[in-house]
Design a protein around this nucleic acid. Structure first.
Length: 457
DNA sequence: CTAGGGTTAG
């Protein structure tokens, strides 16, 4: 008995290590060998295997382990259910999660704090913060000791459901009761603040993070950086980028795309080049999004030959150019004043099977209007299935530039009726234009419409 | 077992 117990423990250690390295087939083989030698797998063995299948393979594969363990006469325990629950929640099979929870209760298995943690997470994913909060209260009422993850899940869920103020309040309250935030906690709140455009508070939280003795990690940096770029605070974002670099963090593929795109957008081509090269030196392979980023860089430099060559390389390397690739080329050609080339590429895009692409057409509209072909831009606009605020802003802006204020005004009214917003500067250009050319009534009418639209929104 | 993710247009 003693020998068996010990052997099963050893088996489990071995299985855990194989599972951790995702060597599931080897793990299965070891279990079979073990049985042959008389080592009986227990609930821990199956749970370990199940959790790995759920994480690395599929939920169905995890269920088949449950089936096998039941056949072997072993009853699922709370950990079995928690693994299934977290798998279902991770895969957004939320009703399945709720069913599993119910099933667990029916089977007479008492949920532990992790079961409740996952359930909370599930309710947040469902967009039901009230239900999640009820679970949170349940944890406290059932005298289950909350784990620090319990609080982090709660805070994250509140942030994701746009209850950032509640999250902050809970955070302060918890701190007051002795909760020691972890780095994750700060990252959660900083992301929430960034998303809510509260950059000042995000900055303060970043400072607090430092004062608590933590060092921002790569996640902290990329969160804040991305947020700066999103709100067009490029200098600030780039400053964070260099701070991140100076701390010795390197970019992964995702961060690299964000940074290079921002550098290109702000005309810092040299730096963009350097960044791209550094990332490649770090052994990160370029995928399609990275190629697209590089392609955009070539276009902005006017290196169209290099751009076309890169497109060939992409497709020869087994990747397929996507709508981003083609749109980047079309926009690049437009910006370089090569309208004919851009139109050709638009045709080509259609030919290789892409359906009408709003962004590509918007680029075309902008290109045509800037190249003095505003009537053709208007024709294109009329032929479009869908329009958005870019379409309107681009046309209205360029109509103003050539002094066609009444046409611009009409288009803007249509835009407002469509419920699309238009850049403030462009609105002003139309109003000023109408007034300066004597159409004060029209200006007044337009102003009224703008106000109404603002109230309705 | 919770935190960030990339690329295009005004």
């Amino acid at each position: 008995m003693m020998v068996f117990g010990l052997s099963t423990r050893l088996l489990n250690i071995c299985i855990a290590s194989l599972c951790k390295s995702r060597l599931l087939e080897r793990a299965e083989a070891v279990i079979i060998d073990g049985i042959r030698l008389g080592v009986i797998p227990d609930v821990v063995t199956y749970n370990t295997l199940l959790s790995a299948y759920s994480r690395f393979v599929s939920l169905d594969a995890a269920y088949s382990v449950v089936h096998r363990m039941k056949e072997a006469g072993i009853s699922p325990d709370v950990i079995t259910y928690n693994s299934l629950l977290s798998g279902a929640t991770r895969n957004c099979l939320l009703s399945q999660s709720l069913d599993l929870f119910e099933e667990m209760l029916q089977a007479g298995i008492h949920p532990n704090v992790w079961s409740y943690n996952i359930l909370m997470h599930c309710f947040f994913k469902l967009g039901k913060p009230d239900e999640a909060n009820r679970v949170f209260q349940d944890i406290l009422l059932h005298n289950l000791t909350p784990h620090s993850a319990t609080f982090n899940i709660m805070l994250n869920g509140l942030c994701k459901n746009e209850y950032i103020d509640n999250a902050l309040m809970l955070f302060r309250n918890l701190q007051h009761h002795g909760f020691v935030p972890r780095l994750v906690t700060y990252n959660i709140l900083i992301h929430g603040l960034c998303k809510a455009r509260r950059l000042g508070q995000a900055r303060k939280m970043l400072k607090e993070l430092g004062e608590s003795g933590y060092e921002p990690n790569a996640i902290t940096y990329t969160t804040v950086m991305k947020c700066c770029f999103k709100f067009k605070q490029y200098d600030e974002g780039l400053e964070i980028m260099s701070e991140m670099k100076s701390k010795g963090y390197t970019f992964d593929g995702f961060a690299n795309c964000t940074v290079v795109a921002a550098l290109v957008k702000t005309g810092r081509i040299e730096e963009a080049n350097a960044c791209m090269e550094q990332t490649m030196r770090n052994g990160i392979e370029l995928d399609l999004a990275a190629y697209n980023t590089l392609l955009n860089m070539y276009c902005r430099e006017g290196k169209f030959e290099a751009a076309y060559k890169l497109m060939d390389e992409i497709e020869n390397g087994g990747l397929l150019c996507d709508k981003y690739t083609h749109t980047i080329i079309i926009d690049g050609l437009c910006k370089a004043g090569n309208i004919i080339g851009a139109e050709h590429h638009l045709q080509y895009m259609k030919m290789v099977g892409f359906r009408e692409n709003l962004v590509a057409l918007n680029c075309m509209i902008d290109g045509l209007s800037k190249a003095g072909q505003i009537d053709r831009a208007m024709d294109l606009y009329k032929s479009m299935e869908t329009k958005d605020s870019f379409t309107y802003t681009s046309l209205v802006h360029n109509l103003c530039k050539v002094g066609r204020f009444r046409c611009a005004s009409k288009l803007m009214m249509k835009c407002l009726r469509d419920g699309k917003k238009i850049l403030r500067a462009t609105q002003r250009a139309v109003l000023d234009g109408l007034r300066s050319t004597g159409y004060t009534d029209e200006a007044r009418k337009l102003r009224w419409k703008i106000r109404v639209a603002r109230i309705l929104r």
